[in-house]
């Protein structure tokens, strides 16, 4: 096992983590401010990917596609919030789970209806094609580095937005006391729509960026959604710092587990068995980590005060 391979896998883990952060940040923000658990977040991710693929195919530019993914996901988020989600804030979590589960059925089947079951493909933009050399030999895809950069910038931007702007102040106020900021004259229902659309846009961005690495298809949001849930549960629901920490942890543990576990097990098992057991263990690893963390800290690592 060379250093270059190890660094490559670490970067892959970081890239997965960053992508998960984009999903988890929206989820945790929506939960923190509105107390809503949104299963349909994966559908917004899918909408972003589809919008990017379609617009990029029509205009020939990935960048316009990326912009379209933000707009489309934010618009879809705002519409869904106004039509459905705002009726759910006062309901219990069970109703929220069911209603957003119903939304997933509708979004997935709707996308299949409009675009068919065949996957769409999205090319990596020319600017980010190619690879950069890694220390110790080996190469790393420039595009994945680009995703990591975008993720870091978004994290920074979110931090500034929440800690330095008026909107961020309202979001924080909404997290600590909804009734009070409504009483102080803040238009709370607009604030909720904005927060939901912001979370949706982040999910759409993640979907568009990952769309160029994988194919764009119906159902692509669901595995990511569940990983994002694991992330926010580990980090503490409602905490963006927790989401960042949890996302990087999950990304790296998952990637390194798949890479290292089968190899590590060859020390105690014959190679064929090691690959088998290692693979099975690796696919369960993040859930095991989550269970361990929750067993010790039942409300996550950075639980927001409630």
């Amino acid at each position: 096992m060379s250093t270059a391979l190890l660094i490559e896998q670490l970067l892959n883990g970081l890239q997965l983590g960053v992508m998960l952060f984009l999903m988890a940040a929206g989820l945790t923000l929506i939960f923190g401010v509105m107390g809503l658990i949104n299963l349909a977040h994966g559908s917004l991710y899918m909408i972003g990917a589809f919008a990017c693929a379609l617009v990029a195919a029509a205009t020939g530019s990935f960048w316009i596609g990326l912009l379209a993914s933000l707009v489309a996901a934010a618009a879809a988020g705002a519409i869904v919030e106004i039509l459905v989600i705002r009726r759910l804030y006062e309901r219990d979590h069970l109703d929220q789970v069911l209603a957003t589960f119903a939304l997933i059925l509708m979004f997935s089947e709707g996308a299949r209806w409009l675009f068919g079951s065949f996957p769409l493909y999205l090319d990596i933009p020319p600017l980010l094609q190619g690879a950069v050399p890694l220390p110790g030999g080996g190469q790393y895809q420039l595009y994945r580095l680009g995703i990591i950069t975008v993720g870091v910038l978004v994290a920074l931007g979110l931090y500034l937005l929440i800690s330095r702007t008026r909107l961020g102040m309202r979001i924080r106020a909404g997290e600590s006391d909804r009734e009070m900021i409504a009483a102080l004259g803040v238009d709370i229902s607009t604030l909720y729509t904005v927060v939901f659309a912001l979370g949706a846009a982040l999910a759409g961005l993640a979907g568009a960026m990952v769309g160029a690495l994988q194919s764009v298809q119906v159902g692509m949001g669901e595995p990511v959604l569940i990983l994002a849930f694991v992330v926010i549960v580990i980090g503490g629901i409602g905490s963006i710092k927790g989401a960042l920490f949890g996302a990087v942890l999950v990304g790296i543990v998952d990637t390194m587990g798949r890479f290292l576990l089968p190899q590590a097990l060859t020390l105690v098992l014959p190679p064929s068995q090691a690959a088998l057991v290692g693979g099975a263990l690796a696919s369960m690893l993040i859930y095991i980590v989550m269970a361990l963390i929750l067993a010790v800290r039942p409300s996550g690592l950075f639980a927001a005060q409630s």
Binding site: H93, V233, I288, M290, A291, L294, A295, P298, S299, G300
Partner: peptide, 20 residues
């Protein structure tokens, strides 16, 4: 050990663990 939304998600995660 957890409750509310954490309980929903942790039961989901255990089921996913068995699924994978």
């Amino acid at each position: 050990r957890t409750s509310g939304v954490y309980f929903i998600m942790i039961t989901l995660a255990f089921a996913q663990m068995i699924y994978y």
